[in-house]
Design a protein around this nucleic acid. Structure first.
Length: 955
RNA sequence: GGGUGCUUAGCUCAGUCGGCUAGAGCAUCGCCCUUACAAGGCGAGGGUCGCAGGUUCGAGCCCUGCAGCACCCA
């Protein structure tokens, strides 16, 4: 028997271990069933679970469990990502606490430290995924830096290089001066910030005055190679080809004509600093062959910064290219000094406040500097074209569909991918250099030596850089399955079925997987891409540590007291004032802390909120409601078990399933047949919803059936049968069997969304319910998913039960509105009853007595005999509850008036419609017929109520 | 500047092919501790579907314009 109260903690603790130990998460590789596979988006190996993971994994597990129960060969591939920059930063911060930098340790020792950190913290997120109930195939867990995946990375790098799709080039990159590495365009976040616009005077060398240029970055003037004006700009046209003197440096630079100069912007003159600005670099590219530029130092492409973004020293052959006064100054210090010096010389024309877009590294937050470096690139055009085609042709389908536009937009404007990073934690680039700087690419140093006949004493040094983390992630759908080996798993599970992810990594990850999958597997990596929204807080704000509004899914599962919650939210806060604010806000929002809701409630909430194409606001009220739902299911199950375990019910009584199997001594009532038909409808709805990725509709259908049909009606209808003296043993058996089988099926239906509670209950129900579709196994997670059965449709039973419900609701409504306690028994008179009504009254009498608390039901042959009564209509039949001593005449008149007004409004609308010849002629016949029928029904009801109103009013 | 999405009850959201009186949960208000469940039961109130036009017999849904909000890209 089930415990009296639902305690998610106790249930969840045991089942996961059992499932995993039994090996039930592994795909069954035998047989000819279809394959179904999802790759987990690998979380950061040293990270911990946030709400986004919780959401994402709840949906994936629902699909995986559904398909596993459907009998597919089902694989959910687990694994983690080494998350290069992020992980390296964490370890560096820990070193910093010891007063060291990574350079103090050296590369090898530092990497050892990172592996140590992984060993320490690497289990956290996989443990947390287990807490969510995720049925991942842990026996095959992978890590992006394990041996197999590293092999795959080298293999891909070498093959792309050999095809000319990977190259090394010196270009402007996004340089992070704090992390000392290049980052890709995607890792740069530009936001508008407050700054200044400086107007600086550059004297004309012909002595006729000066040009004024506007800039937001005055310090970069040291690297200017020209001033550009728009060729159409009348003000400056005559100066094109003249020279100006670059202040503070003594260099002379030309005035050039270029469209890039916007006459409307500032003075219309723009300084060109090709080594420190992407636009300027493009301008320079167009003018680099002009003598006045080509003759400048470095052909005009003058870098002025060190990797720290400080002003660099001069090279031996540069003379005083960089003025000594600024060398060694940080870029912002240099800015101040240069502005001051210009002002001192009368060359500063003005300063105004100006809002500008500032690019920052998404990890470090440092202002990104366009910087000239040697980097490795993937030539992306040849990879992008087939990846675009794969979506256009429908081989890959986005859900919701409109995301494909975002994908196209990016893919059609894609730039070559900078894949080298100047950090230590990651896949080392498989390239070696000799003393002359020649580069050799190969799978290993040995392979390079063999291929190029380089003797062992020929010095080679490996490229110090590592690859962008997303390079290895891009291979995830096939590298995890064993590629480049041709494994069984690869053959079975590639292409995978669906990718489930947030829109934020369409570019980082989804697009790159598609390109790499097509390139190396010759096929798409997945058929569907389901894009879900972001999990936000109850106010719709993005969750972030600095806002202090982060919810930890584990805290929702286990609950957390207020003090630990406050501590957690403010831990490691740099700004005490912010910490104080967050603490205050947390105490206000969660004065009692957060109660434990359990995993099933959390998962069901995620499913219910997963409407397509929208972010979700995570409101604690919702999870509370679904925790209550778990409780409801639990208690309903207790009721079913209490009434079936042990009773006269042997296993045989329940063993039969469906109509054919019904033994002769079992009688199924209309209620039994009705709930079976309703369940059948629900099965269809849930399956359709899951197949269409409508997790919200699936959850809603399960919720509605369980609560509003099974609990509110069927369990109540079962009571008079099970406890009443009038019911036959065959009827009792029929009801018991229906209770058990409905519950058993419902548990299987709900299992993908609430795995723990359904397993726990199923274990108790299974011995009573018999084997669903011949399944005799030990766990619900491998039991067959319910299949709808057209044979159990039963319109007669449905009609009867709807009548019963109308009758009961009619009586309840009168009681409710008249403030009569619901438990009070009342005599009911019935008038205008048809033969069918009379039969049903007879037949359904026990239900009516129990649920409507009818003391007696008397059928009147003539309604005029009735005493003063409150009225309710069931079709044409009138329910009359004598008012004497119970009901106030004025109250009943008011109630009638309200209903009459509603009917009149309705009738008026319908008459209007039917009076319109266009409607009658053009609308489909069925629609017109339905309106006519409604009019006649409403008209009859109105007549009855009006008659009643008159009668009562006249008393 | 370009793009995408959103706007429905106090709140959070459904609403499929254009067709019954626009639904659910939470919140609110009454009555009930009825032997599965007070984490509950029974009942009730609550809507100009962002605004303005258009198409249609019929529009929350389709079209046009406008407004507001959010996000992405430059």
């Amino acid at each position: 028997m089930l415990d009296k109260t639902y305690d998610p903690h106790r249930i969840e603790a045991q089942w996961y271990q059992r499932w995993e130990d039994a090996g039930w998460f592994a795909p069954r590789l035998d047989g000819d069933a279809g394959a179904y596979c999802i790759m987990i988006p690998p979380p950061n190996v040293t990270g911990s679970l946030h709400m986004g993971h919780g959401f994402n994994n709840s949906l994936m597990d629902a699909l995986i469990r559904y398909h596993r129960m459907c009998g597919d060969q089902t694989l959910w591939q687990p694994g983690t990502d080494h998350a290069g920059i992020a992980t390296q930063m964490v370890v560096e911060r820990r070193l910093e606490a010891e007063g060291k930098t990574r350079h103090d340790l050296g590369r090898d020792a530092f990497i050892d430290r990172v592996w140590q950190w992984k060993a320490e913290s690497g289990g956290t997120i996989t443990r947390q995924l287990r807490r969510l109930g995720s049925s991942l195939d842990w026996q095959h867990e992978r890590f992006t830096m394990d041996e197999g995946l590293s092999n795959a990375v080298r293999e891909v790098f070498v093959r792309l290089f050999e095809e000319g799709l990977i190259y090394r080039g010196k270009r402007l990159v996004n340089w992070d001066p704090v992390l000392h590495t290049a980052v890709s365009d995607l890792e740069v976040m530009s936001e508008e910030e407050a700054g200044h616009m400086w107007d600086m005077r550059y004297p004309l060398t012909n002595g006729t005055g000066h040009l004024t240029v506007s800039t937001t970055r005055p310090e970069t003037m040291l690297g200017d190679c020209a001033v550009a004006v728009n060729p159409e700009d009348e003000r400056y046209r005559h100066l094109i080809g003249e020279l100006v003197e670059l202040p503070l440096t003594g260099r002379r630079i030309p005035i050039i004509a270029d469209e890039h100069a916007d006459p409307e912007f500032g003075t219309g003159c723009v300084k060109i600093t090709p080594a420190h600005d992407f636009n300027d670099h493009a301008v320079w590219t167009g003018h680099r062959d002009e003598l006045q530029i080509a003759d400048q130092p470095h052909g005009g492409l003058i870098n002025i910064f060190t990797p720290d973004a400080a002003i660099r020293a001069n090279e031996p052959d540069e003379d005083d290219l960089i003025p000594a006064a600024y060398i060694g100054l940080d870029r912002y210090e240099a800015r101040k000094r240069i502005v001051a010096d210009l002002e001192a010389r009368g060359l500063l024309a003005g300063v105004k406040d100006h809002r500008l877009m500032v690019p920052r590294g998404d990890r470090s937050g440092a202002v990104i500097e366009p910087y000239l470096t040697d980097q490795w690139y993937v030539k992306i055009g040849p990879l992008a074209a087939p990846a675009i085609e794969a979506v256009e042709s429908g081989r890959i389908r986005f859900v919701p569909d409109n995301w494909k536009n975002t994908y196209y937009e990016w893919m059609r404007n894609i730039q070559d991918w900078c894949i080298s990073r100047q950090i230590w934690w990651g896949h080392r680039i498989p390239a070696w250099y000799d003393a002359e700087g020649n580069v050799y690419v190969g799978r290993s140093e040995q392979e390079v030596r063999d291929q190029h006949n380089l003797p062992a004493d020929f010095a080679l040094t490996q490229d110090p850089d590592v690859l962008d983390t997303w390079f290895s992630s891009a291979l995830w759908p096939f590298s995890t399955l064993g590629w480049p080996e041709d494994t069984e798993r690869l053959k079975t599970f590639y292409p995978t079925s669906v990718l489930i992810t947030g829109f934020d990594i369409i570019f980082f990850w989804v697009a790159r997987m598609i390109m790499m999958g097509l390139k190396f597997m010759g096929d798409v990596p997945f058929r569907d891409v389901y894009i879900h929204g972001l999990v936000r807080d109850a106010q719709g704000e993005k969750m972030s540590k600095s806002k202090g509004n982060v919810l930890d899914p584990i805290d929702l599962i286990d609950g957390i007291e207020l003090e630990p919650l406050v501590e957690k939210r403010t831990r490691g806060m740099m700004q005490p004032r912010l910490a104080e604010k967050i603490a205050k806000q947390t105490r206000k929002e969660f004065p009692e802390g957060i109660p434990a809701f359990g995993t099933d409630a959390l998962r069901f909430t995620f499913a219910a909120l997963a409407t397509t194409g929208r972010d979700i606001k995570f409101d604690l009220g919702r999870i509370e409601g679904y925790r209550n739902f778990c409780n409801k299911l639990w208690n309903a199950s207790r009721y079913v078990l209490m009434n079936t375990v042990g009773a006269a019910s042997s296993r045989d009584e329940h063993a039969g399933r469906g109509k054919d199997a019904a033994p002769t001594d079992i009688a199924l009532s209309a209620a039994d047949r009705w709930i079976t038909a309703k369940l059948n409808d629900t099965i269809t709805q849930v399956r359709e919803a899951i197949d269409g990725y409508r997790f919200d509709l699936a959850a809603q259908a399960i919720y509605e059936f369980t609560w509003s049909q099974f609990c509110d009606w069927y369990l109540e209808l079962a009571k008079p049968v099970l406890t009443g003296a009038h019911a036959s043993d065959a009827a009792k058996r029929g009801t018991r069997r229906t209770l058990v089988q409905t519950l058993e099926t419902l548990l299987r239906l709900a299992h993908p969304f609430m795995p723990f509670i359904t397993e726990e209950i199923w274990q108790k129900v299974k011995p009573l319910a018999g084997e669903p579709a011949g399944y005799g196994g030990e766990t619900i997670m491998l039991a067959p998913y319910p299949v709808a059965d057209a044979d159990v449709d039963d319109p007669a039973a449905v009609a009867e039960m709807e009548w019963v419900q109308q009758f009961i609701l009619g009586v309840r409504r009168i009681k409710g509105e008249m403030n009569i306690p619901p438990g009070k028994s009342l005599p009911v008179l019935v008038a205008n009853a048809s033969a069918q009504d009379r039969a049903w009254i007879e037949h359904a009498r026990p239900y009516l007595d129990f649920l409507a608390r009818t003391e007696s039901i008397r059928v009147l042959d003539d309604a005029s005999d009735a005493p003063e009564s409150a009225i309710a209509l069931v079709g044409d039949m009138k329910l009359l509850i004598p008012m004497a001593g119970l009901i106030d005449k004025a109250a009943e008149l008011k109630r009638l008036e309200k209903e009459i007004a509603k009917l009149r409004g309705d009738i008026e609308r319908i008459e209007g419609k039917l009076a319109n010849p266009n409607f009658v002629d053009k609308a489909p016949a069925a629609v017109v017929a339905r309106e006519r029928e409604r009019l006649s029904d409403q008209g009859a009801a109105l007549a009855q109520l009006v008659a009643q109103q008159t009668k009562i009013a006249n008393l």
